[in-house]
Amino acid sequence: MTSAFTTPTTRRRNDHQRRESTSDRLDASQPSSARRYDYWLGGKDHFAADRHSGDRIATAFPTVHTAAKENRRFVHRAVTYLTGEAGIRQLLDIGCGIPTTPTVHETAQRIAPAARVIYVDNDPMVIAHTRARTSSSPQGAVACLHADLRDPDSILNNPALTSILDPNRPVAVLLCAVLHYLHDQDQPAEILKRLKEALPPGSCLALTHATLDPLPSATALAVTELLGTGHGAIRPRTRAEVTALTAGLPLVQPGLVPVTRWRPHLPPQPHATAQATATYGLMAQLP
């Protein structure tokens, strides 16, 4: 790894700048993936367009509220593992979404008060809410970074990163319910490779990813028909596709599994089936 997470070139800068010019503006008339997710979780930070979009998706995939909640349970089991068993004290939560209780840093600092957490998102409303609602333990630190995963260097080369995280100590990167917003042209495998190359030995990567694999054919067809219409413009991937994305990453047991089957003995325990969540989860640890 080069020092301070940095590398010489930024390959997606122009595309990122074009996206940033629109993502910086809050448009309540258009659904937002972060606000829609907040709606499914039972939060309060959403608008009519988000609720309408969320309900449209729920007509095709009726357990989507359950899927959102089980994804959050996975996140907190992963953080419990990372700060407990793995002993990691630095976390980078990319695509963090609107804060929910408990937050990632609350879970981490409950186990390890000196844990240091950076939240990253490209949605200005997420950034505003995260900055307003997060306060660290006296021993640890919490920060928030407005950046886009599609341009990983905008995250890794940001001075705020090394003001909080030590680039010579293991870092846990959370990519939960975010990679399925990257379509194939965004080159998600290259983005994962870039992140992997920047991390010091012993670092971990936890991710979740939407899939149609366990769904009945009628449900899968209904969801597919919504994709690209503004209601759930995501790229679900099969088990084989997620495996290909993460090729070369040494997986922590039990490997790539439905989120409800990833270390279910840890709190908070899952309460749903693989079919109800339609989401894969995994943890990898770099040698």
Rank of each mutant, 00 (worst) to 15 (best):
V252N: 00
L175T: 02
N14F: 12
T100W: 02
C96Q: 08
V104N: 01
V104A: 05
D15G: 15
E225G: 00
V257M: 07
V117I: 13
R110Y: 04
R150Q: 15
G95K: 04
R133W: 06
N157Q: 13
K44M: 13
R73Q: 05
T246D: 08
K44Q: 07
M125I: 11
G232T: 03
D24K: 11
A86L: 04
C204A: 12
N168S: 14
A247W: 07
A210D: 11
A278M: 04
Q185C: 13
P250V: 08
W262C: 02
L91V: 14
R131W: 04
H265M: 12
S217G: 12
G95T: 01
T229N: 07
Q285W: 06
P201T: 12
E106N: 09
A108C: 01
S29L: 06
A34H: 10
Y81N: 01
G84T: 06
S21P: 10
L226Q: 06
A108R: 07
H65E: 14
G97W: 05
E241M: 08
R35W: 00
L182Y: 03
L156W: 06
H271L: 14
A240Q: 11
P159G: 14
H146A: 14
R25C: 07
D184Q: 06
P138Q: 10
S137H: 15
G95N: 03
G42Q: 05
L175K: 04
